[in-house]
Structures are given as C-alpha cells and as structure tokens.
C-alpha cells in the first residue's frame, strides 16, 4: 500500500509548523510499512491532481493568501473541487481552511472571493483568537478530543448544510461564539488548529490516513503504534486546559 500526498502551496502556506503535519503522516505510514510519497506543488506549477490520494494545505499570512487567488482562478480551484467531490482526503489548516470557503471580508469591509468549494464565509477582525485550545471531534471523525493551538483573526461561520469538524471544549474555534470548530465534508478536514495538529493527536492523524486508504483500496487497517511520547505531550496539554478525554 502507498499514499501519494500532495502538499499544495508549500511556498506560500507554510506557517506554524505545518511541515510537522506532513512529517507526522509520513512517519506513521512508514512505521507501519506503508509507502508514502510527498509531492510539493508550489504556486504556479501545473500538475494533474487526480493522481494524489491526500492533499495538505497549510496556513499563511494575510498578504500571501491574496497571492494565491490568481493561481486558484487559473484552474486549480476546479481541480481541487473535483478531488474533494471525488472523496479524496484533504487536511486544510487555518488559512488553507479559509480558502475552501466562499470568501473573506476584511476588518475594513473589503470582500475577497475565495474558492467557494464549501459554503462558508470568514470575516476578519482586529482581535486575534490566540492560544492553546481543545475540541471534540464529531462522531463521523472518530469522536476523540483534539488539542492544538489557534491563532486567527478570521471568524468563520458555516453554511446551514455543513457539519463542523468538532465542538469546542476550550478556546475559540471557528468564531468564538457558536461553539463549532473546523469543517468536515466528505473526506475534507478543515481546522484552525496548528501546533502542528497531528503529532499530539495520533488517533486523529490515523483517522485521516485511514480515510485516504479506504478510499483508495476499499478497506484498510492500521496497526497500533507505540504512542508513549505522543500521549505524554497530549496529556500535558489536556491537563493544562482542564479537559478530560
């Protein structure tokens, strides 16, 4: 078995330890004898997306996100939408998550069209939501608790037909008001959590990998791993946030 991972826009969206998510997926596949090939697709590269099993889009700075839009409009938007509708797995963090939505309204009221692949909107504000936080995944994503770090000015509100990735236990999540965090659509996982999110949440990581393996091979099982270091780091943050599993 092998997963082909496509890291989209690593040159622009690479803030907050995003490389750690890639490293985590790669190691957890390799430790189980499953192949893993990571291809980086920087801005402006032309490539067929249909050969990939899993897409990763990370977070970026406000300025750099506007740089992306011309590339998305040049056709990549449709390729990404087709892959998502085809059941391919996506992990999108922070700015990469926001890009899936219809657009972004800046704190000054300026509107910026995003991909519109999913029905949600993000509004900028001058107060950033910053800090360690925790949320409980929805049942379709395994139901476990995820710990991470959020740092975003954007407040995201999901359209009525969309399911959040989880429910906030501590911190702000999508907007600090409605208790939702992230988005889950087919095999698309969108979240504000960086940190990076995967290393301290091995079950969440395995769930994401499994969704791609099942999509590709029809069925798959992941052997358990020795997660002592993962669980120690995770437990520390759960205790600090006074969250129980």
């Amino acid at each position: 078995m092998e997963l082909k991972i496509c890291h989209l826009y690593p040159d622009v969206l690479n803030l907050y330890g995003d490389r750690g998510n890639i490293a985590c997926m790669r190691r957890r596949l390799e430790w189980r004898g499953i192949g893993c090939a990571v291809t980086e697709l920087p801005l402006g590269t032309v490539d067929d997306l249909t050969g990939y099993d899993l897409f990763f889009i990370g977070g970026g700075q406000d300025f750099e996100q506007t740089v992306l839009l011309s590339d998305l409009n040049a056709g990549r938007r449709d390729d990404i939408r087709a892959a998502a509708e085809d059941g391919k797995t996506f992990l999108c963090i922070c700015g990469g998550y926001q890009l899936l939505g219809r657009g972004y309204r800046t704190a000054d009221g300026e509107w910026c069209d995003y991909t519109g692949i999913l029905d949600f909107v993000t509004e900028g504000s001058r107060d950033r939501m910053i800090g360690n936080y925790a949320f409980r995944l929805g049942p379709e994503s395994g139901g476990g608790v995820v710990v991470g770090f959020e740092n975003h000015g954007g407040r995201t509100r999901l359209g009525s037909g969309l399911t959040p990735l989880g429910a906030v236990l501590k911190g702000c999540g999508n907007n600090g008001q409605d208790g939702t965090e992230g988005v889950r659509y087919r095999n698309v996982f969108g979240t504000y959590s960086h940190g990076p999110v995967l290393p301290k949440n091995p079950a969440f990581c395995d769930g994401i990998l499994l969704s791609a393996l099942v999509r590709k091979y029809g069925g798959a099982e992941l052997a358990p791993l020795e997660d002592a270091a993962e669980n120690a780091a995770r437990r520390y943050m759960l205790n600090r946030l006074h969250v129980t599993e």
């Binding site: 490389r19 750690g20 490293a23 740092n151 940190g195 990076p196």
Partner: peptide
C-alpha cells in the same frame, strides 16, 4: 511566544 509550533519548522531531521 506562547506558540511553540516553530520547533516543527526547524530542521532537527
């Protein structure tokens, strides 16, 4: 800096 995620951007590998 309360965000320690930068350690994943450093090349310990």
């Amino acid at each position: 800096g309360t965000d320690v995620s930068w350690i994943w951007d450093a090349d310990y590998e």
